[in-house]
Design a protein around this nucleic acid. Structure first.
Length: 426
RNA sequence: GUGCCAGUAGCUCAACGGCAGAGCAUCGCACUGUGGAUGCGAGGGUUGUGGGUUCGAAACCCAUCUGGCACCCCA
């Protein structure tokens, strides 16, 4: 144990049983993305810091990104999010891409934050975006994808929920209260914090931000108004659309949802664990209609969301949604080795079975069968094959089921066919 | 980046100023052509790391690292 190099803070080691969960999650992400006709893409993990300087949240770039100079002295960033990269990739080929564009991605990201449960410094993120359409139906499609994803994972609407709001609606409400647009970003931050603070603290804080008593009361009544969405044609259409396609469950209006990133322009949404103990949000997204123009392209409307792998994995584990079948044994057949004289015959039989498409493990050392079977048992392999002198003399092998202990002798020439048959049945 | 809590065998934990232990796991034997069960035995530790207090530190103090909780922020 001594002198062991510790892993970099906030990174995770994916041991096989954890990698299995990760791969399974990736397969679900792929399945749902493809079900809606989205195409997989990927960007570079390294980006110039200038790409983020444009429009991501200030803190995300200045405080939470891994930034280092390359050998030429240019500042390189380990990507903290994908949306600016996506905007750049689309802007670069704006004239040749086919819109509406539906793209998805699942890859690693880095943020220099304090690691704790649900948050690491290196994490994977599902990004999915619909670019080139500015309609409530497009927003509804992304929300529908989330609902579909939750259903695919076996979560129900008492466990997780998607909360939706519209920044334009909030801005117009703040305007009605006489709060100027220059002051509105600060008020959005106030809104973001309200549920975490005691009421009195929040009011005092609001006064410090320059709001009048009357405005504070106004903001409070906005945030408590669960029917506020009825003032927004956009939200009305989104909810009507989701109702019509029967995917309105999991979805709820919430005026408190604002989102931290600066580039969101209208619809914003966030999914949370409501039945359990994970307070951190599962995913977040919304409409960002100006980002492409900000990175040098033509103005193109877009909507999308991002989901980190860490929080959703925790939630799936808490709710027992991870199917045990994903921890399959690494092989279906174990070919024992008996002696140095018969070793090559065993290896040869194993290779024959592999050529038939089976996953086969052999014991690469001649040790007693006791030890080999114990190994096979612990690896949860279902069938073992013995090929010792007795079997070789008769041109057969012994097939043993490790689940019920039964054994049968099979002529060597028939082994592949017989085994395929047994594996198909079991 | 701020505050609080915790780190003891591979894992879960005990010992709480006085000989570092248990359960599980591992390895060996009973069982050299047959796994799971059982019995017997063995190995395994600079108590996260560095310093300090003390006759004596796993324990108390300081620093540091790592993790967890609440902030900040966010996936």
């Amino acid at each position: 144990m001594k002198n062991m190099i510790t892993p970099v803070k906030g990174t995770r080691d994916f041991y096989p049983e954890i990698k299995a969960v990760h791969s399974w999650l990736y397969s679900k992400v792929r399945k749902v993305s493809e079900r809606y006709g989205y195409q997989e893409y990927e960007g570079p993990f390294l980006e110039s810091i200038d790409l983020y300087a444009a429009k991501s949240g200030e803190e995300l770039v200045k405080e939470q990104s891994f930034v280092f100079p390359d050998r030429g002295g240019d500042l390189i960033t380990l990507r903290p999010e994908l949306t600016p990269t996506l905007a750049r990739m689309v802007a670069q080929r704006q004239k040749q891409l086919i819109f509406p564009l539906r793209w998805w991605s699942f890859g690693p990201f880095w943020r220099y934050e304090k690691p704790q449960k649900g948050r690491s410094r290196e994490f994977y993120q599902w990004n999915i975006d619909l670019i080139g359409v500015n309609t409530p139906q497009a927003d509804a499609e992304l929300i529908a994808i989330i609902v579909n994803f939750f259903q695919e994972l076996g979560l129900d609407s008492k466990q997780v929920k998607i909360f939706v709001n519209d920044r334009l609606l909030m801005e117009s409400e703040l305007n009605l209260l006489g709060i100027p647009s220059t002051q509105q970003p600060a008020v959005f931050r106030l809104i973001d914090r309200r549920e975490k603070m005691a009421a009195a603290d929040w009011e005092r804080y609001s006064l410090e931000e320059g709001l009048t008593q009357q405005q504070i009361g106004g903001v409070k009544s906005i945030l408590d108004n669960k029917d506020l969405w009825k003032k927004s044609e956009n939200l009305i259409t989104i909810f009507d659309t989701l109702k019509a396609i029967n995917l309105i469950n999991f979805v709820e209006y919430d005026p408190n949802i604002i989102r931290g990133l600066d580039y969101y322009t209208a619809t914003v949404f966030e999914a949370k664990d409501i039945g359990g103990t994970v307070r951190r949000s599962i995913l977040g997204g919304g409409r960002y209609d100006n980002l492409l123009a900000d990175v040098g392209g033509e103005q193109v409307p877009a909507v999308g969301f991002a989901m980190g792998d860490v929080v959703i994995s925790l939630i799936l584990e808490n709710y027992g949604c991870i199917p045990p079948q994903i921890f399959n044994p690494p092989a279906s057949v174990f070919v024992t080795t008996f002696s140095n004289e018969t070793l090559l015959a065993s290896l040869s039989l194993a290779e024959t079975l592999r050529a038939q498409g089976m996953n086969v493990i052999t014991y690469p050392e001649v040790v007693n069968l006791n030890k080999q079977l114990k190994f096979a048992d612990r690896m949860k392999i279902k069938y073992a094959i013995f090929l010792g002198p007795d079997e070789i003399a008769q041109s057969v092998c012994t097939l043993k089921s490790l689940s019920n202990g039964s054994q049968e002798k099979i002529p060597l020439s028939e082994v592949p066919a017989r085994l395929s048959q047994i594996l198909d049945e079991g």
